[in-house]
Design a protein around this nucleic acid. Structure first.
Lengths: 371, 371
DNA sequence: GTGAAAGCGCTAACAC
DNA sequence: GTGTTAGCGCTTTCAC
């Protein structure tokens, strides 16, 4: 018995058949307690670890779910330059670099955590893969490779081309996260971007009398942002304000860009009473610029974000925002995959997760802190 | 040909043998170009996705590496309470909750990114699993399950009991990250905790004349922290200062706890000239407390951290720290696994990654920002 | 409750 | 360069 032990070794050791070993490991209740113990003892003694591949092949399910994330930009360049040095410690001054691109804020970290959590609960393992700046071909290979190893695949919007996903989709269930349906049969899970931004904007109008909020958008191709802007516009229209008359600025979802944009606004004296940002990062950038200029939030300008990232509770003032349930997004993705595995013929499902508008000091002014 | 297509289907469709199909997909250079095209065409047409399980079983390598992370605490309780509500949007005031435990800062996110990056480069997929607050048994099951599905396993220190790991270790290569060797044969990858803290402390003594720094420790059972404190003590001894005469405080690696501890210090008038914290989170907590008390950093007190998290560059003042190459840790883990797979009989390896002491405003005072 | 036997879909020798 | 043939280590009927 050189090499790893197999069911045969365990069976021989315990004096049973391989079928019984298999039963003990998968449906113990079908086996007499005494036999069970003998087998388990053999398993321990031989340090037997069942082969996932053999199991997957025989049972036609791998017990693994896949998560495909969009390319975290430029992560390749983050390698520490000091790493090649021979000395174990380098000491150096590290002056501030204003435009510095920090390690990509893994916006989807919470989704990943949600997936892992729910996968664990459902008895699945989780495999992850990142789109990165790959060529279309290598992206296709990566996806198809992943697809061959999992029972279901969750894909975050815009991380992979639709045609490739469709091909994979008739091999295993695909769940599409946070993106619009576009002629596919996948299960979709999205977040109430539109309703969230509408509610927030309505609050600004109704409670704070804002009639000319300025909107700070993200990238042009973000469907999330499109929905958010839609909600913003709807709120205005609903209150008799023409949204097309209001200027819109572009911040590319970047804190740095937003800071610069806001600084320009301040310099030009074109600051509105309220700046509605399509995400928190940009809102924080706006706060940076406003703070640097000595302006007061919300007294001089109201600032709001979207997403509900932690940093928004550590800024001064804390950021009013719309929180997305990112963890829930991951959990819902796994649930959807499992549901689909159990019922492959159901019609494609759509789930839209609720959001929460969190009113904090950046629009409300001082709030009494909770104990 | 109902159900998923297999090699046989593709072979028949292309008019070749299954061996040739396999070759085209694994070693195309062994196949005539014209045959290749025929096969590839059949693959596309049938939407063939090779079964990872069958491949793994036949070739005895899964092409998957595993990463086992420590339990991200209480992630289970983070579920958004609003999620059960029927309405798509909830609007509510969100006052500050001082003691609030925010979403666990996934300290190991960068390790994960490094693993994914390097795994991709090396042609492997990555499977992740989290220790969470599992019972010892279920932890063992989870690990052994994972072990059956991967070619190698990277484990972050203290996420799993040593005996379980040893069992797994003679089934597949195990790489142990950021922990001390303790009678195991794993490859180990650590970071120069000791040297980093020693260099930082020496700088405080030599450049700033600090003779009585106070140390803020993490949990008792953290080997990382033990090393760091060791470096701190060495630096002092090397300069003729007796470290045991200096008080040590306990902050549990928590920002909140550190804030409270520092507040006590301030209230009691026992503030030293320098507070050396075992991690950045605690150093940030100290900055919080100092800021609230109107004290100036570094004029009144010098504060230093350890880790090099992004938030340390966004605090006021920015935090002097020792940066750990977390991304590199992940990359090194994957490289170690791959190396071990290619040479199983090599002696257990030890790699210690260099760190960088980053001197910033929290000890140096104003630095001219880089353009 | 347990065993015998037939695959699951691929890769890897080995022939040709 | 390509085909034939054995397995890889399990799960799963189907008997008993």
């Amino acid at each position: 018995m050189a090499g790893k032990p197999t069911v045969y070794d365990v069976a021989a050791h315990a004096g049973v058949s391989i079928a019984t070993v298999s039963r003990v490991l998968t449906r113990p209740e079908d086996v007499r307690a005494s036999t069970q113990e003998r087998v388990l003892a053999a398993v321990r003694e031989l340090r037997y670890v069942p082969s996932g591949s053999a199991r997957g092949l025989a049972s036609r399910r791998t017990g693994v779910l896949g998560l495909f994330l969009p390319g975290v930009d430029a992560v390749e360049d983050l390698s520490d330059p000091a790493i090649d040095a021979d000395r174990p410690v380098e000491v150096r001054l590290d002056p501030a670099r204003p435009g510095q691109r920090l390690g990509a804020d893994l916006y989807f970290e919470a989704v990943l955590r949600g997936c892992e959590l729910e996968a664990w609960r459902q008895g699945f393992s989780l495999m992850i893969s990142v789109g990165r700046g790959r060529s279309p071909e290598s992206l296709e290979i990566a996806l198809s490779d992943l697809a061959g190893k999992v029972d279901g695949l969750a894909v975050i919007a815009q991380s992979a081309p639709h045609d490739v996903l469709k091909r994979i989709g008739d091999s295993i269930p695909v769940v599409y996260l946070a993106g619009q349906r576009s002629g596919d049969d996948f299960d979709h899970i999205t977040v109430r971007n539109r309703e969230g931004m509408r509610a927030l904007t309505e609050h600004l109008i109704d409670a704070h009398g804002i009639r000319d909020p300025m909107y700070l958008t993200g990238p042009f191709d973000s469907p999330d942002d499109a929905e958010r802007y839609g909600g913003f516009a709807e709120a205005l229209e609903g209150r008799g304000i023409n949204p097309t008359a209001l200027p819109v600025l572009h911040g590319e979802f970047s804190r740095e860009r937003a800071r610069a944009v806001a600084a320009d606004l301040i310099a030009g004296g074109r600051l509105p009473r309220a700046l509605v940002c399509a995400n928190d990062q940009m809102a924080l950038g706006v706060l940076d610029a406003l703070g640097a200029a000595g302006l007061r939030v919300p007294d001089d300008v109201i600032v709001t974000g979207f997403d509900g990232i932690d940093d928004g509770t550590r800024s001064t003032p804390r950021l009013t925002t719309v929180r997305q349930p990112m963890l829930e997004l991951g959990r819902a993705a796994v649930r959807a995959m499992v549901a689909r595995l159990n019922a492959p013929d159901l019609a494609p499902a759509n789930a839209e997760l609720p959001v929460t508008v969190l009113l904090r000091e950046s629009c409300e002014g001082p709030l009494p802190p909770l104990p």
